[in-house]
């Protein structure tokens, strides 16, 4: 099939960007979206132009590197699918495809479709962990975890940190990302002692990074390539309320 791409091109963080139009020819339905971009890029290099920069790595939907707005939808039209796992068989010959980078204050554009998502790392650094220094652990089977709890924790832990939730949210909120980590760790017995502190620190960092607030549009859940549920946000809020109420906030260090 042949396609027309409208792609955001921006040379650097502080330069003005604009859309450019490219033709993608002889695209097979068995190509992934990124492989289609590879074809376009090879063509650009052969014509002496700069290829379109985009983040990608594992190309099997787990590393969370890739992500673009495709026709106004984060990661494109397929539900629960990262951009690298979106296959061209879902497009039709002659389609025009709009490609934009994630847009958020906390995700400044570095170049073309590449954005800086280090804000998400800082949210984790603020409290998205269980303090368990190497070597001090007791036998793994001494901690009993009901299967349902382990499964729920795993559902939330499946987050790949791609930032699609932020990109899709009309408010540029990172609540789904933050809520997922709070839910993952908060579901487990090992995560209880730091539960109050974790939610307060992570929420504070999330706000500090300049993400917006949650207004429950539900766009994040639809965009999430790992199907993470809005429930994680309710859970984050619950934990936040409890932690604020019990005064754990005063004990922040």
């Amino acid at each position: 099939m042949n396609l027309t791409l409208h792609v955001w091109r921006q040379a650097g963080p502080s330069t003005e960007g604009a859309f450019a139009t490219y033709e993608a020819r002889d695209i097979s339905g068995d190509m992934s979206f990124l492989e289609m971009m590879d074809v376009v890029n090879e063509g650009l290099i052969e014509r002496g132009e700069q290829p379109v920069a985009f983040d990608h790595d594992c190309r099997e939907g787990i590393c969370g590197s890739c992500g673009m707005m495709i026709n106004g939808v984060a990661h494109g039209p397929m539900k629960a699918t990262a951009t690298c796992q979106l296959f061209m068989r879902h497009f039709h010959d002659g389609d025009a495809i709009h490609v934009e980078p994630w847009r958020a204050r906390a995700f400044p554009v570095i170049k073309d479709l590449v954005v800086d998502r280090s804000a998400l790392d800082r949210v984790i650094a603020a409290g998205g962990f269980i303090t368990a220094p190497t070597g001090g652990a007791r036998d793994a089977n001494n901690i009993l975890i009901a299967k349902t709890n382990a499964d729920d924790a795993m559902d939330a832990a499946a987050c790949i940190g791609c930032g699609a939730c932020v990109a899709a949210c009309p408010n540029g909120s990172a609540s789904l990302f933050t809520g997922a980590k709070i839910t993952h760790l908060g579901q487990l017995p090992q995560g209880q002692s730091e539960r109050d502190r974790r939610v307060l620190q992570m929420v504070a960092q999330m706000d500090e990074e300049g993400f917006g607030g949650c207004t429950w549009h539900g766009e994040c859940q639809e965009a999430c390539p790992k199907n993470i549920s809005l429930d994680v946000i309710a859970r984050m809020n619950h934990d936040f309320l409890v932690a604020s109420w019990t005064g754990a906030g005063d004990k922040r260090d």
Binding site: I130, A132, G136, A137, L144, I145, A150
Partner: peptide
């Protein structure tokens, strides 16, 4: 030791209904 360490960190390994790994 690795399994112990990872469980302590909150790695959600698969569990049996009784709660064991």
């Amino acid at each position: 030791n690795i399994i112990d360490q990872c469980v302590a960190q909150g790695v959600p390994f698969a569990r049996e209904y009784g709660g064991l790994l």
